[in-house]
Design a protein around this nucleic acid. Structure first.
Lengths: 149, 149
DNA sequence: CTCATACGGTTGTTTATGCAACTAATACAA
DNA sequence: TTGTATTAGTTGCATAAACAACCGTATGAG
């Protein structure tokens, strides 16, 4: 079980995820050039709010695969930059519902354009079939590691 | 070119690299349980020193795909934890050569065992063929984004 | 109803990243 | 040889992550 370390390929780059680091960096650079004033991490929160506004911080934790303190602070910064607003839930006073501001809504079109463009740069020359295959492998890795946390 | 956003699959998880985050978290957890006292990022530096000791910080930047300040600070912390030592190059006094201490060398066997075990957990149930294919796709993504930085 | 428990969120601490600006040493061209 | 550009590394600042400890609110068993 541990003698296949090299059959499994370059251990280091698999663990450190060079490709996804590269995508995140490029996306950040493209945001900057396009005048999208947000970090990639902030975008990852906004992305889910654009799909459905008014989610709780806990729902954003689940959606973005982050822990609660991380989301608290991302929302802090998004609020500071006037992109979202915390609104206490009337029914359950523990919950903060996060709503986009007009500025936050305005950002969607350009940010998603840049994100799609970035993904196209990243996947240039990779066939649909291989993209799907890679997705399946990465999902399997994710699933393998999720259950037993 | 931007109408294929959904053909390319779930944009968010591709960009955020859920799988590699999950691997890094699991590796950190496994290090802790095995008594390996290093962060995953520190391990990524040690990994290259175990392959070849006495590299410069610049070489470690290239090897680990990090910028110079990141490596400076990782080496700071590794030195603080007595795992490596900076030695000025005699020939070129700008260069720091980084050498493993006895503690740093001692850590190799257990850390690499845990890293391999973690990769096996992550890739359980994925065929060699699909692992190779995923590797090729990720390498292509990396290459696509490297040149034009 | 009450009290233990679970849940949602925040704060503190340490570690790490990216960018820009900087210093010191080297290389190289005029 | 001098002066400019390049290279190696460091520092400052802002953002983000993980973990533990914490607070207030809700829930549900007795």
């Amino acid at each position: 079980m541990s003698n296949n370390q090299f059959r499994k390929g370059e251990l280091y780059s698999f663990i450190t995820g060079k490709a996804s680091v590269a995508i995140a960096r490029r996306l950040q650079k493209n945001f900057k050039e396009a005048g999208v004033e947000a970090t990639v991490e902030q975008w990852s929160i906004l992305y889910h709010l654009w799909k459905e506004d008014g989610r709780s911080q806990q729902q954003l934790c689940d959606a973005t695969f982050r822990d609660k303190p991380s989301v608290t602070r991302l929302v802090d910064n998004l609020e500071k930059n006037k992109l979202v607003k915390r609104v206490g839930d009337k029914k359950d006073r523990r919950i903060n519902l996060i709503y986009l501001t007009p500025d936050g809504r305005r950002m969607e079109e350009e940010a998603m354009r840049v994100a799609n463009q970035t993904l196209n740069e990243a996947l240039a020359g990779v066939s649909e079939k291989n993209i799907d295959l890679a997705k399946v492998v990465l999902q399997k890795v994710y699933d393998n590691l999720q259950g037993m946390l």
